[in-house]
Simulated scan of single mutants.
Amino acid sequence: MNRIKHLRETNPLVVCVTNDVVKNFTANGMLAVGASPIMSGEKSEAEDLMKAASGLLINIGTADEMKKDLMSKMISEANRNGVPVVFDPVGYGASKFRSTLTDTFLDTYRIDLIKGNAGEMLALSGAESELKGVDSSEKTDTLEIAEAVYDKFQVPVLVTGERDALVTGDRKAVMTDGHGLQGKITGSGCLAGAMAAAFIGIEQPFNSQSVVDAVSFYNLCAEAAVESTRIPAPGTFPANLIDQLYLNENDILSDKKVEVL
């Protein structure tokens, strides 16, 4: 299936309740790949938006008490309308507020994909760990972490890192494309979560291959962004990455490195 062409023809509306720090980067990246993002901050529009949306991203990177109500209302309306929800528990384990917020949402609502980095997802799994926050070093295999989170919640799980791992009810996959500069900029993982929501939204019911292709396309575009830059560095990389998300087509996925287990 030509998912990139399908995405661009469908132009899915993805509502992003996300980290304030990364809204501009996320919106530009989503537009470049062919989706239609809305950065919502008003809970009273949840009912209207979820009647039109193809996907919802909830990212708790800069959550607070007011945003908690907004996120709750958005997920509730998404569940009511059958809109797939991607949930990113940014910084889980770094504070009681973040952990309680995440635990409450995962216990209360239907989530279609839990996506996070190795450190926060290891904490979410309940395993003993010293890893905390969004800059955690990866000391445990991402596939093992994804398996542990899936076993706990029985929800599809994407763990990002040097090796990205996806675990669902019927599939385990490890993706090894990408570049180290993705870890040197703010918002790389946040945009990946939004892209996953877009790809999931155009194929219902949930299709694990759509997540694999979303992650692989993003990571291959990151590699292309580095290759197109004379001196790759964190300042120029984000702009070049957005360019590559716009310029590349489905054929780039023929080079994806995926191990299906």
Rank of each mutant, 00 (worst) to 15 (best):
A198V: 04
G193A: 02
V22S: 12
N207R: 11
G187A: 08
A198E: 12
D213K: 11
F206S: 08
N24V: 03
D170E: 13
V212R: 07
V159N: 10
N240K: 15
V211I: 15
R230G: 00
V86C: 03
L57E: 13
K51D: 11
A127E: 15
M71A: 12
G183S: 14
I200K: 02
T26K: 00
P234N: 12
G133T: 06
A196G: 01
A192P: 01
E259Y: 11
H6R: 14
K257N: 15
T102E: 07
A196Y: 01
G55V: 06
V22E: 08
K43V: 03
K132A: 07
F199N: 06
S188I: 01
Q154V: 08
E120N: 08
G235F: 06
N248I: 00
S99C: 04
Q204C: 04
E65T: 10
D112E: 13
E47S: 14
D170H: 09
A194L: 00
P156G: 10
L13R: 01
K115A: 05
D135V: 02
K5C: 01
I60Q: 09
L158V: 13
E65C: 01
A63H: 05
F217T: 04
G61E: 11
N219S: 14
K152Y: 09
V90R: 05
G169H: 11
V17A: 03
S228H: 07
F217W: 11
N59P: 11
K172H: 09
P232S: 12
I58A: 04
G41R: 13
L31N: 13
F97N: 09
T168H: 08
S40C: 15
E130Y: 04
T18L: 00
M175A: 02
G34W: 05
I231P: 00
K51I: 04
G161M: 11
D103K: 09
L7T: 01
S228R: 12
L13A: 02
N28T: 07
N19M: 05
A53Y: 08
V21K: 06
V14N: 02
I252G: 02
K43H: 13
R8G: 07
D243Q: 11
A78W: 05
S228D: 14
T168F: 04
V258Q: 11
D112L: 01
V21Q: 06
S208N: 10
Q204D: 09
E65L: 07
L122E: 15
Y246S: 14
L158Q: 10
F217C: 04
